[in-house]
Design a protein around this nucleic acid. Structure first.
Lengths: 229, 229
DNA sequence: TCGCTGCTGCCAGAATCTGACAGTAGGCTG
DNA sequence: CAGCCTACTGTCAGATTCTGGCAGCAGCGA
């Protein structure tokens, strides 16, 4: 195996083990000596890979993801760039900024002619709507990831306010607003909640009793067939 | 310069010259011997790069684009995936298919935990609208790229039909339909045309007298300020 | 204190890469 | 057809890089 291939393998290894791994283990998995591993790690760090080593612990790959060399056709690149531009115009600040950063990174490695072609493919959406998020989406993401309940006050389309305890499992886009998709304990059904109508968001420390993947699947199934059938 | 860096450089070189380039020229640009160049080309081909060499002509990089290893944060990946999903749901069949392919390629190299997180971020747009493209968007793209005029019949929102000759310079999304952005010869102004209302599209072989980048810039400027000011 | 770990410098042998030369084969032009 | 340009392969010796082992230092936890 050539050295450059091995470097990618090393990243994949680090990603597999999420906990700190000792250099010795990594060297074993790659079939190289510990000395060479240290050199490889140094090389990767030199190329900007976010690898951290601490004495007595081992190595961890900091969050952040390296895409290995990927082949895309012109159209696939166009699709990716266009989609990222769309995300960049969405009101979710964090995602929008992330999309802008991603676009910058992609543009940096694109050949000029392709970049020109992409300029001819524009997005005609209006300026981003001034939707003020009243809540911290980070809390929602965390609750989803850890399968924890959420409590909040909600004001529905009619203006009626209510208190909810829900089991969130997805955070989606709907037109210009973001919605939390969840099982509502009060209604005993799937509901989605516009984030801009949520107030007093409080994470609850109890885990909800179902797997979020399962609920996602069930919820999708209810979407596929029209209401009432 | 290490060999692996040079291989990426070689791809960039090939991309710069769009016409066939002889191995000798490439070797000069990279500062290596012809023999080493042949070896490098062979290596790249072995890794799946679409390089073609023909005796008497030179090397060409077949359309298709290789993204070098790129670092993305979790959020940037989420933005890219989300955007691609959005594109995949758009009515433009070619782009939608391209987005689906790109997503598959990205998903293939994503670690499992990240893929799970992304599942929790859904797109709540309805099923793709049944917009039948009556024209071949490929012709439009080609006209834009080559700065050629286009002639077609257009039926506007009020139902009134007209013949147009335009200078197209962009192909954009607007909500669920695609629009051609162009300078309209009849109206002597920028106009955009919904592709589903265009019929009898005919490419015209005459080049229009302005640069498409310039027109794009001017058109963008008109968008920034509200009408009438 | 000990053990485990990260990390660096050094060195000799192994592996790889590189350039040069020679030769084959294919396309293009005259 | 000949002549030229090109892609491509084989071979080989020297240059370069890579690799593993060793020694040693530093930080962390028990």
């Amino acid at each position: 195996m050539s050295r450059s291939e091995r470097l990618l393998d090393l990243i994949q290894c680090l990603r597999r083990h999420r906990r700190p791994v000792s250099g010795h283990v990594l060297a074993d998995e790659l079939g190289i000596s510990i000395r060479t591993l240290y050199r490889d790690i140094a090389t990767l760090q030199g190329q900007g890979a976010p690898i951290e080593g601490e004495a007595g612990l081992g190595y961890v790959l900091k969050p952040g993801f390296m895409l290995p060399p990927l082949m895309f056709s012109d159209e696939e690149i166009e699709a990716i760039v266009l989609g990222s531009r769309w995300v960049a115009k969405q009101p979710d600040r964090r995602l929008s900024a992330a999309a802008a950063n991603a676009l910058a990174k992609i543009a940096a490695v694109l050949p000029d002619d392709l970049r020109d072609d992409l300029d001819a493919s524009t997005l005609l959406v209006g300026p981003p709507a001034e939707v003020m998020e009243s809540i911290d989406l980070g809390l929602v993401r965390q609750a989803i990831r850890n399968e924890r309940k959420l409590a909040f006050r909600y004001r529905d389309a009619g203006g009626a306010a209510s208190r909810r305890v829900v089991w969130p499992f997805a955070l989606g886009f709907f037109d210009k607003v973001r919605v939390v998709v969840a099982w509502c304990e009060a209604r005993q059904d799937f509901r989605h909640f516009r984030t801009d109508r949520i107030t007093d968001l409080k994470p609850i420390d109890t885990r909800y009793p179902r797997r979020r993947q399962t609920m996602l699947k069930e919820w999708r199934a209810t979407l596929d067939r029209p209401r009432g059938s």
